[in-house]
Every structure is written in C-alpha cells, then in structure tokens.
Nucleic acid binder design. Sequence first.
DNA 1: CAAAGGTTTGTTCGCGATAACATCGTGCCC
DNA 2: GGGCACGATGTTATCGCGAACAAACCTTTG
Lengths: 319, 319
Amino acid sequence: MTVSRVLRNRGDVSDTTRTKVLAAAKALGYVPNKIAGALASNRVNLVAVIIPSLSNMVFPEVLTGINQVLEDTELQPVVGVTDYMPEKEEKVLYEMLSWRPSGVIIAGLEHSEASRAMLKAAGIPVVEIMDTDGIPIDAMVGISHRRAGREMASAILKAGYRHIGFMGTKMPLDHRARKRFEGFTEVLAKNGVEIEDRAFYSGGSALAKGREMTQDMLSRSPELDFLYYSNDMIGAGGLLYLLDQGIDIPGQIGLAGFNGVELLQGLPRQLATMDACRLEIGRRAAEIIAAQLSDPPDPVETKVVLAPTIAYGDTLKRR
Amino acid sequence: MTVSRVLRNRGDVSDTTRTKVLAAAKALGYVPNKIAGALASNRVNLVAVIIPSLSNMVFPEVLTGINQVLEDTELQPVVGVTDYMPEKEEKVLYEMLSWRPSGVIIAGLEHSEASRAMLKAAGIPVVEIMDTDGIPIDAMVGISHRRAGREMASAILKAGYRHIGFMGTKMPLDHRARKRFEGFTEVLAKNGVEIEDRAFYSGGSALAKGREMTQDMLSRSPELDFLYYSNDMIGAGGLLYLLDQGIDIPGQIGLAGFNGVELLQGLPRQLATMDACRLEIGRRAAEIIAAQLSDPPDPVETKVVLAPTIAYGDTLKRR
DNA sequence: CAAAGGTTTGTTCGCGATAACATCGTGCCC
DNA sequence: GGGCACGATGTTATCGCGAACAAACCTTTG
C-alpha cells in the first residue's frame, strides 16, 4: 500500500520511505500494472479517439491538438481508425469501450444505430468532432461543412465565375465532403448556376489524380472557368497542371480546394481554400473532455461551432 | 461463466443458451470489461507501436502496414508518439508497458539506457523498425540508412555531379537522417568530393522550406550542380522553385530526396529518391510479433534487412 | 438399466492494484 | 505522565473477469 501511495503521489508518505521505495522500484525495474490499477480504482484515464483515417493529413493535425491539451492532464488518447466504414467504426468503438475509457472523441455526427446506443450507454463524455451539421449525442466541436460549401460558392460567384466543375473523392460515406458539396450546389442553384462537370477518384496519389482529372475535365469541358476541389491535395495537382499548361490563373480559370493544408504554402501559387480549423477542433474537443472529467466538472461550452475562414490565395479573383 | 464463454467463443456452449446469452447481452447493452478480463487471463492482445511522429507521412504508412497484418489476428495496435525526444520515448514506453502489451514495435535502434532496460525486462517480443544499422534488442526490420546514403552518393557521382549541396532537418535526434548523411559523405569523401554547402530547417511547411532554402543556397553557392535533400518534401519544394526559375534539371542541377512518398507522383517532374519500404516494414514487423505470439511460436526471420531501391526519376542524370 | 463417456453448466479462487478503514508512533499540551 | 491528534504505515475487501476444476446432465452401449 505504501508503494502504491508513493508511485501515485497520493496520500502522505515520509520522505525516507518514499526514496527507499523509488530506489527499490528502479532497481527491480518495476512497472506498475495499470490493468489492475484501473480495475481497482475504476479509473482509466484513457480517451478513445476514433477517426476515419490517418493517411489524410487532416486527422493527424486534429490528434496534435488533442495531444497538446491532454498532455497537461493525466488523460491519454488512444486512437482507433475506421477507414470511413460504419461497421468498422462500430467494431472499433466496441473494442475501445470495452477498455472503459474516460471519454470518447469521435469524428462525425453520423453513426450506426448500434454505435449511437453504445455511446449513449457508456455514461462518459462524448465529443463528436469535425462537423456541426446535425444533432450531437452529447458535445460537438467543428465547423459547418454546409456553410463552408455555401461560402465558397458565394465567393466564386461573386468573383464572376459561372462555369464550374467539381472534383472530389469517391467516398459516399464521407459525410463532410457530401455536406460541403450540398452547400456548394445549393448556393449555385439559388443563383441559377449548375455544376457543369464533375469527377471522382479513389486511391492513388491525390496530387497525381488532381493532375489527371483536371486534364481530363478540361479536355472534356473546355468552357469551364472554375474548378472546385474537395480537398487541397487534388487542388494542388490541378494547379500544378494548369501552371504547366501556361493557363492564366485566376483569370482564365479559377481554383479552390478545401482544408488549408500546410503543404500549400510551398506551391508556386497559393491555392484558394478554406481552413477547417483542425488543430483548434482537436484542442477544444480535448478541453471539453478534460473539463467534464475534472472534479467538480468545469462548465464548458459543449456545442462549439467554429467559423471556417476563406483564404483567397492567388487562384480566386477578388472583387 | 457461461456468459464469458459465449462472448469469447471459447469452450462448448449449447446453441440455445448461446442465443439466450447474446440476446440478453444485446438487450442490456452489455460491453465486457476488458480490463478485468486482461487482469484475470494475463492476456492483453495489445501491441504497443512507438513512433517519433505522425505528421510525417512516413509513419502513418508504417502503421497501415502493421494494421493490415494485425487485422487478421486478435492483436490490436496502440500508438504512442515520441516527437523524436528520448525522454518522451521513455515516458511513453513506460506508460505503454504498464498496460502490459503483448508486444512492442518501436522505431529506431537508439534508445535511452532505461528504455532498453524496460524493453529487455518486459519479456515480450520487441521489434525495432526502420533502421538496421545497429544491434537490436530482439528483432529488427528496416533498411540500412547508411547504405541508402552511400548508394545515392554513388549514383550522383556516377552521373558526373561534383559540386554537391545538402539540405535537411535540424534534428540531431533523427538518427536515421544522420546515418544517411554519414553514408552519403563517406562515399563522397572516398571519391575526393566534399559537400560544399549545407542548410538545416525546422518547423513550417516542408515544401515552402525547400523552396526558400534552395533559393538561399543557390544564391550563396551558385557553383553547385547537385542538391541532396534529406526528405522528399523539401526536395519537392526545391524542385518547384528550380522549375519556376527555368533551370535545366537534371542538366544544370540535379536533385534527389529520400523516402519515395506518393506525393511525388503528382509533381511536374519525378524527383529522384529512394524508397524506404515503409509499408513493407510495418507488415514484416507485425508478422514477427504475430508469429512469436502464436502458440507454438512460428519460426520467423527476426533480423530483416530490406533493400532500398533508388528511383532516378527525372532529376538525376543516368549514364 | 447401469455404467461409461461426453457435453454443458456451475463454483471457487486469484489476477494486481486501490478504497476504506485500522493501527502504530511520535510529539505536544495540559 | 496521560491523553490526544495527526502523520505514517498496515489490513482487508473488492474491482470483473477467466482458469481450473467440479458437478450436473445427456447419450450411448453392452
């Protein structure tokens, strides 16, 4: 018991025994068994973080934000990846919950019935992140992707572009991309504009795909004067292709992506994009979890809607 | 006990009771407590994966390889990030080991004395990955970065370049980058060539840094005819800059990076690089863990040295 | 129909820690 | 010097499950 107290820094232990215990622990290479500790204390201090993908640049940045905040607490994030598949999300969630984490941060607002039931039944703080177009189970932090789509559409129309092509990923289950697209077309429709060509890809190097798709689309639909990409990577590919071709950007053709990835800063031109507030989302989500778990719970805003900001860069005319 | 048997699919249970149990579990939303299970059975089925960074594109790919293999087993990876800091590695390792994982996959061969002691004392399979220039604690999978550096140097010299500049990250603790550099300079030295200029960066967008640094270096040392970058991202930045400047590549200046990232496929020119076998490393490491944990342990090769292959691309003359 | 043997279900104990409470010492005060 | 308070240390029960063994229940067979 004294050893336990020393190693957890809890309760009074005299300095002499404390040092003796620490010395012995070191000599023996003793590593406490958190499994037993967690069982006995009913406290786990793990936060399950469930995201669709790691190979995306956007989620690692969210993780960074989460880490930054949790580092100052005793909480530790544990990451699970769903590959955008609801069944896998369900499985990962089940696995995670069976470790009885202290909280859950999960991407998106769309989950299977079973997943929602598990989250509700878990009796722990749940923060749904990235997206705010929907009703959260508990807390949420994100941006409105519908609004992001709408704002980009407005900016494009205001700049005078009228013949718009769209390129995105072939991901029916990426609800956020879908919502952006919906918001985008909604504003276009209100202004009597329709998307004139579209293309979707899956797999491969996004940059290379952006190139190819742009080439294909322009040869198919040479009248286009604007290309909207569902992410910056393919947008960057398109940009590089158009620059190669000596096309006037943003005069002849305008371009925009989404995400505000750091990569863009190194391109010959700055691609117009919209910041998805990834780091901030991670931080705020972690803060909500931490606040709800502190004793007594700190009051926090549990429905956080961040405002994505448009970056015009060099590929979208301004008026 | 019968419930336990049903939920773990272990032991004989009649179909009638099995269905009854499953129905009840579902109705109650019962999620078994793995903490208690792990404590009782002394089996955890977690594999600790300890890597320096997630924002790098190289480690996510290793993780993908690990995932691919572990998905077919009952093992589950748990990721810890060290930010290239030995103290943090030590801390993360300690935290991880206190959950008593079934195996450890850890990047690099260089660890603090304490970390090595913990790994040895843990009594579980340990696979050190990425690098093979050194002596592993237990198993290792990777490439020789020294050799990678040497081979690139040979290729560059063979192509006739003699005035070489180097750009890399300011990371004294990235041992693999260091070893590549050592191998590189070693071959140069043998051929009476020295690196004529060098620059290091930290933080920021690698692509943008590649641009800036290349510009600076060439204005400082205009006589250079080859630029060797410690990673593809800054190499790509340099490439884009030089193309902007209308410089003849690979005639006037040759370029090479390292890693073989997918990104490169979308660039206007293919940057010369060397594949680090990231996916393969992840897969092999996971296979070693899985094999050693199967009962009885499958025999596997525990010292796997993969051969990095050079890709000449369009930025390195061939002869 | 009893014994044997297999299948299914139940009991007990312990995993390694912590919570809660109990005990031991020491110093202080009246 | 006795009583008390408080800090330091020790005891016991418990967390939820699985291992190992025990018991109950079937089925088969001579």
